[in-house]
Write a protein that binds this DNA or RNA. Sequence first.
RNA 1: GUCCCCAUCGUCUAGCCCGGCCUAGGACACCACCCUUUCAAGGUGAAGACACGGGUUCGAAUCCCGUUGGGGACGCCA
Length: 459
Amino acid sequence: MSVVTRFAPSPTGFLHIGSARTALFNWLFARHHGGKFLLRIEDTDRERSTQEAIDAIIDSMNWLQLDHDKEIYLQSQFADRHVEVANELLAKGQAYKCYCTPQELDTMRAKATEEKRSPRYDGRCRNREESDLPFAVRFKAPIEGSTTIADLVQGDVTVHNDQLDDMVLLRNDSTPTYMLSVVVDDHDMGITHIIRGDDHLTNAFRQHHLYKAMGWDVPQFAHIPLIHGPDGAKLSKRHGALGAEAYRDMGILPEATCNYLLRLGWGHGDDEIISRQQAKEWFDVSGIGKSPARFDLVKLMNLNSHYLRETADADLVQRIEPWLNEKGFTLEGNKDILTRGMPGLKLRAKNLIELADNALFYLRSLPLPMDEKAQETLTPENLATVAKFVSALENQTTWTESALEEFARGFAETNDVKLGKLASPLRALLTGSTVSPSVFDIMSVLGKEATLERLRTTY
RNA sequence: GUCCCCAUCGUCUAGCCCGGCCUAGGACACCACCCUUUCAAGGUGAAGACACGGGUUCGAAUCCCGUUGGGGACGCCA
């Protein structure tokens, strides 16, 4: 049997980072087994679902390069089918009409809580007479016995059926609820493996009986632990846990994000850096741990600097474009110099924002904005050394990093100055800063003419 | 409150299923040193954990029970 997984987000906001991981796992599982990965937007809550959220989710999926098979399904498209199933269940006596009002349910739950009982629905409408009142349709769940789910991550989990209440299938306006829709859609779409957050674990028991009532095969479940914030509580905005696109906006690469998310709760021996290809080969739900993991932005950043160094120079130049634009610069006519400067630049950045910022000095016109510390290195004494160095440099023909370094070392020795004493004012004049790639790297990237121009500019 | 799940360095984890190879390994972060024109990167090293209590066993991080701590679910939300 071929594997079919799905990612089924509800479009009520951005793609939460935890959901992104769920999507990644489903994608990886399908790709590992050569199966299908479907995307279904669970928009049965028409009130809260927005097109904006749908777009944001699709954007993030694209960014993470989690490509889905077939078209994007909208759950609302299948509402008629869901109602049909509910009616079939009603006809078979496996569901019943519930006339309870919201107030009545509130009272019931309040009383149960007060008496320290579970606030779940007590099934009071199971035997109520037919009436003309508006009604919801509830599933008639078994009361006796127990249910066991052989979860691929959690193992065998058993719950007594008296813990399961009668879930609502159809609201009193005849619209289907999520509980009904997921089961029907997952069945109709031939989903074989449901990988989702373990906040759905208890739902799985009730859904199990719904499958059974319809005589359908129950898919395999894999309930993965949720991601927690640094304090161990459920990850929330407070922790800086935003949508996947927020990480993109922090200048984090999708490769780093996927690698980080993959390693969060899943491991393959001591391996830390795992390429997408490798991940596809290695991924298995049995490797997923059962305990929740805390989200650590510092580690993500570390991974990001690694992937930054691995990325091709020309590619990085393209990727920093948005941040360059933000600062008022364009790629036009600058691609070449940035690409040449990239090896020295990318070694020193944790993210694309830093990378873009650090690259700016290559693009600025003279005189450069000079920061305070850089200004301090421009003492009369240092400037005299620089002037002497510049005249000597005019005769330098081999304009490569190593040749320039050799030249500078020779110059320092014959003039009895320390290399550092020479390098710091050079750095200031070349970049306007005291922190940068190697000055000789910069000189070679800039070329002779531009280098001399910068070194002759006065501040 | 009821039910379910979890528990190895600060964090992510390896080891656990199939007890001995574990004086518990790796990574991030932290500290020190080396390299060095700055900053990084890189290298070397230090520090740092089997939640607790009982069993079982010749032997337990690994198996069992309990305690404690954490998490999740209990919507006409998804």
